[in-house]
Amino acid sequence: MTEGIGAGELPAVGPPAAPPPAARGSRMLGNRGVLVSTASTLVVLGLIGLAIAASPGADIVRERFFSWDHLKESFLGTETSPSVVSAFMLNIRIFMTAEVIILALALLIAIVRSIPGPVFFPFRAMAVAYTDLFRGIPLILVLYMIGFGVPGLGLKYFSSMEDVTYGIIALVLVYSAYVAEVYRAGIDSVHESQVAAARSLGLSRWKSLRFVVLPQAIRRVIPPLLNDFIGLQKDTALVSVLGSIEAARAAQIYGAENFNYASYVIAAGLFVLMTIPLARFTDHLIARDRRRREAGFVR
């Protein structure tokens, strides 16, 4: 590296760059290692299973949480309660829509915040106020204020949107504040000598940002960004407070009707299934960046 600046020096974002060695995969374990680790895993899981099965109340837990009939019924839905899986499609839709808007809006906020010069002071101040405000207010309050407050205003267009739309707006408002900070940390981590080099070649301030600073900044913040998106995926469930029937709400309906929690297990499983790929992808990127940095230092 020409500069002593790496992603490892990002201020206060992302997990520490030390994924467990297991992330490197079985290549490092060797054949014998794979056998031993498989055996050991089976033994441990078996022991835990035995302990659970033998514990008092095991039957009732199995019936309330893992009853096969209830798992199936809540998964597929009944005449009186919606299918948790189809409701989960709404979570995915909310997530996808919000994510795209957040990525763009947050970048805009971060850029505004990094424009120097006294003329831009009011814009910078607005960006700072925005992030301070929306990082401070609990998401659920923003949901209430937008979802119940705005319709009550009787505005022509803004007061007659779908519940889901208000939910998405609230998620966008809150998460953009977080993501803008992540972007900003990335922008700040690009050494000023990079800007000096770009400007000295006669590139304008905007073009230096676009071609030199942002590509490096964004590359460095991808892992913490993905981390925030895992949070966003889960928080789509909160949109249910506005009446939208997404997976958590559908699970609740089923549970209340049948005095059974299998529906929650299904909903939880769906959320986990959605976040795992993103979590593994994040690990992969972190590991790749670390390998790159290490390779950069040997030269």
Binding site: E3, Q194, A197, R199, S200, G202, S204
Partner: peptide, 20 residues
């Protein structure tokens, strides 16, 4: 300033190439 700089090349001690 951008026009002036286009006529002047500068090279720094630390190279400052764009790593990406």
């Amino acid at each position: 300033v951008d026009r002036v700089r286009r006529g002047i090349g500068i090279v720094f001690q630390a190279f400052n190439l764009f790593p990406h």
